[in-house]
Simulated assay, not measured.
Amino acid sequence: MTIRNWIKFFFNALLIGGIVTAVMGLIVRWEFFSQYLTNGEIWQFTGALLWMVFLGFTMSVVAQMGFFAYLTIHQFGVNMFKTLTLWNWVQLLIIAVVLFDLIFFRFRLTSGETGRTLLYLTLLVSLIGVSAITAYFKAKWTKKHTLISAFFFMIVVTTLEWLPALMVRSGNIDSWVTILLFPLLAVNAYQLLSLPKYNRQSDEDKAKQEERKKARKKVASASKAK
């Protein structure tokens, strides 16, 4: 990928993270934001909203680091297990382990917390649903064999990026766990689906650059001949 296209890729992902986090913050923590509007404290409201945007930028950077780390891990996995089929089975096993760990250890659900159980089940369904849809379109728009790898990335890598929030045990943790999941999902889905477009654009840009170099050489040769 060329530097110019990487910059576009980076800032688009950054923007998605900021917008999604701000929207989720307004929805999940509306009681917190509404008090500023009720009291006419517009600057305080704007400052709190900008802080959510900045948090979204941070989550976007985390997601981008995770994405490029996964590209390396994926290639390493294919080389290590020799065939893509075997690597896909390994990825499916890891997906199952990660989902098991989420449900039985990270969510820390108890029988007496019905509302909290419903919240975390909704988050789990969102994680799996968005991952499945993203993987489907990735396979449809590129190659069918990318389905498992895309599903693995969306489930496992997103969960790893989400893990710091899940490990916090104090404060208004349920709200932050909810808020932080969705920018990670949005940015990761964007990266997975849009990367081929930026790679193609980079190839086209490189080809045009080579054509311009050849044209300049021809002009220089013609000038010398005269």
Rank of each mutant, 00 (worst) to 15 (best):
G47W: 04
G129S: 15
I7D: 00
T46A: 08
V61E: 03
L49R: 02
G66E: 02
K206P: 00
I103D: 00
L37G: 11
V98N: 07
G18H: 05
I42L: 14
N88P: 02
K226V: 15
V97D: 02
G25H: 02
I94M: 08
S202P: 14
S126P: 01
K226S: 09
W30I: 03
A96I: 03
W141I: 04
T114Q: 11
D101P: 03
G112M: 06
A186Q: 09
R29V: 03
T146L: 14
R212S: 10
L121H: 12
S223H: 12
V61G: 00
I133K: 13
P196H: 08
L127Q: 04
K206N: 06
N199H: 10
G17Y: 06
I27A: 10
S194Q: 10
L147M: 14
N79M: 12
A48D: 08
L15M: 13
Q201A: 15
I19D: 02
L163Q: 08
W51R: 03
I3K: 12
V97Q: 03
S60Y: 01
E161M: 15
L15P: 07
T142L: 13
S131Q: 09
W89P: 00
F100P: 02
F45H: 04
K138S: 15
F182Q: 01
V177W: 00
W87K: 05
R108G: 00
A139D: 11
R212I: 11
I16R: 01
K82E: 14
D101T: 10
M59R: 04
A132M: 03
R116T: 14
L84E: 11
S149P: 00
L14G: 01
H74Y: 13
I94Y: 10
S34N: 14
I155Y: 02
A189E: 03
V97A: 14
F81S: 04
W6I: 09
V168H: 07
L49S: 01
K197E: 11
A215L: 15
M65C: 05
E113D: 15
W89D: 09
L118Q: 05
